[in-house]
């Protein structure tokens, strides 16, 4: 017999007090990444030997800029959610756990920012 209230079950708030938020965002970013990464890989294949001007011209096409930004955000978000669970599972010392989680967030946050700024600089720069 469960002692949880009906309201508690409906809200889905477990011990982490965030319910299915993490699980749902991991799936949402995963689904977004299926078409985005496939598009990106196929696009890169046609630019294996492309010169700088060709790549800049490609990134500057408005829909390409938007898709690259979407890819960057979904990618680093998904990465953070995934590696977070790996760290939770394998690092048992509390101090190391907190340090690792902070480093992961720094990496994911700065990585996403670097990608976004690079893409915007290429796309919006004067050329």
């Amino acid at each position: 017999m469960s002692l949880r209230s009906s309201l508690g079950k409906v809200k889905g708030l477990g011990s982490a007090k965030e319910g299915v938020h993490h699980w749902r965002l991991q799936r949402l970013t995963a689904i977004a990444l299926i078409p985005l990464t496939l598009w990106f890989v196929v696009s890169l294949l046609s630019k294996v030997h492309a010169d700088h001007a060709t790549v800049v011209a490609w990134v500057s096409i408005p829909y390409v800029t938007v898709l690259l930004l979407a890819l960057s955000i979904a990618l680093f978000w998904h990465l953070m959610l995934g590696v977070q669970v790996v760290i939770e599972d394998y690092i048992h010392c509390t101090t190391k756990q907190i340090v690792a989680q902070l480093l992961l967030r720094a990496f994911a946050g700065l990585g996403a920012l670097l990608a976004v700024v690079s893409i915007l600089k290429i796309s919006l720069g004067t050329h």
Partner: peptide, 14 residues
């Protein structure tokens, strides 16, 4: 992803 970031910022730098 560090390789991807390296390539992207290289394109941005010139």
């Amino acid at each position: 992803t560090m390789v991807l970031l390296y390539w992207l910022q290289a394109v941005a730098r010139g």
